[in-house]
């Protein structure tokens, strides 16, 4: 039957055509097409990967930024705290110092006052003593200015003296 009897002519030409097609298409069509598709697929893959990486980097950067912001904030807080502490310390020190100075000045003033007072008292005592002597001298002089008075005195004294 013709339908299922392969003809030698068609077998021959099919073989020739197929081999020719395989060689020509393989060299001039499939090779460049497949290479181009592969290159493009690789390009797309790379682009996707690099986009992914960029996203990752950005996220990292963002988180880094946040971290450094937090760190900066913390550092600022510490600095502020330190500054505050330092300020307090300085004020306290200054206060203590000024207090001490004031105390010292007060003490020395008090001491001086005491000294001055003592000196004044001593001076006063001396003057009182001198005055007393002067007065006593003047009194003596006036008491002993005449013989009667001297005699009266002696008598008076003699009266007091109890010759026992």
């Amino acid at each position: 039957m013709n339908l299922v009897t392969p003809g030698i002519g068609l077998i021959f030409w099919t073989t020739i055509t197929f081999i020719l097609l395989l060689v020509l298409l393989g060299k001039f069509a499939w090779k460049p097409i497949l290479a181009a598709i592969k290159t493009r697929e690789k390009g797309i893959e790379d682009a996707l990967a690099s986009a992914e990486n960029a996203l990752k980097d950005m996220r990292e950067l963002k988180s880094n930024n946040e971290k450094s912001l937090l760190e900066a904030r913390a550092a600022r807080d510490i600095l502020m705290k330190e500054a505050r502490e330092m300020k307090d310390a300085i004020i306290a020190e200054a206060k203590a110092k000024s207090q001490a100075e004031a105390d010292r000045i007060m003490n020395s003033a008090r001491e001086q006052i005491t000294n001055e007072k003592n000196a004044a008292v001593a001076d006063l005592k001396n003057q009182v003593a001198a005055l007393s002597i002067e007065i006593a001298e003047k009194i003596l002089r006036s008491e002993l200015s005449s013989d009667e008075k001297q005699k009266a005195l002696v008598t008076n004294l003699m009266k007091d003296v109890n010759l026992n």
């Binding site: 030698i8 099919t14 055509t17 097609l21 020509l24 001039f28 069509a29 090779k31 097409i33």
Partner: peptide, 30 residues
């Protein structure tokens, strides 16, 4: 032995020319 360019062979040649033109021009467009 009949090696004639029959209707089938002629169509096969046409399809070969079509394929060569089609795919080589596609390759060139890349």
């Amino acid at each position: 032995y009949d090696f004639s360019i029959t209707k089938n062979v002629a169509q096969m040649f046409l399809s070969m020319i079509l394929m060569l033109w089609l795919f080589i021009s596609i390759a060139n467009s890349y």
